Simulated assay, not measured.
Amino acid sequence: MEIMDLIKSRRSIGAVEDREVPDDVIRELLEAAIWAPNHKKTEPWKFRVVKGEGRVKFGEEMARIAAAKAAGLSEEEAQKKIEKARKAPLRAPVIIVIATSPSGKVPEIEEVAATGCALQNLLLVATEKGLATKVRTGDMAYEKELHKFLQLDENDKIIGFVYVGYPKKESEIKAQRTPAEEKTIWIG
Score class of each variant (00 low, 15 high):
residue 150 L to Y: 02
residue 140 M to D: 07
residue 133 T to S: 09
residue 114 A to L: 08
residue 58 F to Q: 01
residue 97 V to E: 00
residue 62 M to S: 06
residue 110 E to V: 05
residue 185 I to N: 03
residue 134 K to M: 14
residue 165 G to P: 00
residue 49 V to F: 05
residue 93 P to Q: 13
residue 144 K to W: 04
residue 58 F to I: 12
residue 122 L to D: 02
residue 56 V to N: 10
residue 110 E to W: 07
residue 74 S to Q: 06
residue 173 I to R: 15
residue 43 E to R: 13
residue 28 E to G: 03
residue 137 T to I: 10
residue 135 V to L: 12
residue 127 T to L: 03
residue 33 A to E: 06
residue 116 G to E: 08
residue 109 I to L: 10
residue 152 L to T: 03
residue 3 I to K: 12
residue 165 G to W: 03
residue 96 I to L: 03
residue 128 E to A: 14
residue 85 A to Q: 02
residue 96 I to P: 00
residue 136 R to T: 07
residue 18 D to H: 14
residue 53 E to K: 11
residue 118 A to G: 05
residue 7 I to M: 15
residue 142 Y to Q: 09
residue 174 K to Q: 12
residue 13 I to C: 08
residue 94 V to T: 10
residue 31 E to I: 05
residue 1 M to K: 15
residue 102 P to L: 10
residue 39 H to P: 02
residue 178 T to P: 00
residue 64 R to G: 01
residue 148 K to L: 15
residue 143 E to D: 07
residue 73 L to I: 09
residue 22 P to Y: 08
residue 137 T to G: 02
residue 77 E to T: 13
residue 38 N to V: 04
residue 84 K to C: 01
residue 116 G to D: 11
residue 20 E to Y: 02
residue 22 P to V: 14
residue 163 Y to N: 03
residue 91 R to Q: 10
residue 28 E to I: 04
residue 175 A to Y: 05
residue 188 G to I: 11
residue 6 L to T: 09
residue 143 E to N: 07
residue 74 S to Y: 09
residue 23 D to C: 01
residue 126 A to P: 11
residue 22 P to E: 09
residue 158 I to K: 00
residue 109 I to V: 15
residue 148 K to Q: 11
residue 126 A to V: 06
residue 184 T to Q: 07
residue 45 W to R: 01
residue 176 Q to V: 11
residue 45 W to T: 00
residue 51 K to I: 15
residue 125 V to G: 03
residue 111 E to Y: 07
residue 153 D to H: 15
residue 150 L to A: 07
residue 91 R to D: 06
residue 131 L to I: 09
residue 180 A to Q: 11
residue 49 V to W: 02
residue 20 E to D: 12
residue 140 M to H: 02
residue 53 E to V: 12
residue 53 E to F: 06
residue 86 R to W: 12
residue 155 N to M: 14
residue 68 A to G: 09
residue 66 A to W: 02
residue 28 E to Y: 02
